[in-house]
């Protein structure tokens, strides 16, 4: 699934990539997406301007760290 997310992003099929990324984040943890985001930013040369995707992935990771216990609690309730 990890590879599928990257290929979908490369193919500019962004909505399915985002949906898969969302599911992946809560299933396996958003931390795994950070290296992929850094590599994608490097591929597109965004480190010469602004690495949007890498920073977004870090923010997303922090957000999921705070969100996932609440989501799991809701499921249990």
């Amino acid at each position: 699934m990890y590879i599928a997310i990257i290929i979908l992003f490369f193919q500019n099929i962004l909505i399915p990539a985002a949906i898969l990324g969302l599911w992946f984040s809560f299933r396996f943890g958003a931390g795994f997406l950070i290296p992929a985001a850094i590599m994608i930013d490097g591929y597109f040369g965004n480190f010469y301007t602004f690495p949007y995707l890498s920073l977004f992935s870090i923010l997303w990771y922090i957000l999921t760290v705070y969100l996932s216990p609440r989501v799991i609690d809701l499921n249990e309730a």
Binding site: I40, G45, F47, I58, Y61
Partner: peptide
């Protein structure tokens, strides 16, 4: 998260290294 942020900052300072690694990985 902090380590990842530091890596991104380093990448921002040394873009050539990150892009070379990404070229191989991607």
């Amino acid at each position: 998260a902090l380590v990842a942020f530091i890596i991104v900052c380093l990448g921002f300072l040394l873009p050539k290294i990150v892009t070379s690694i990404s070229f191989v990985v991607t």
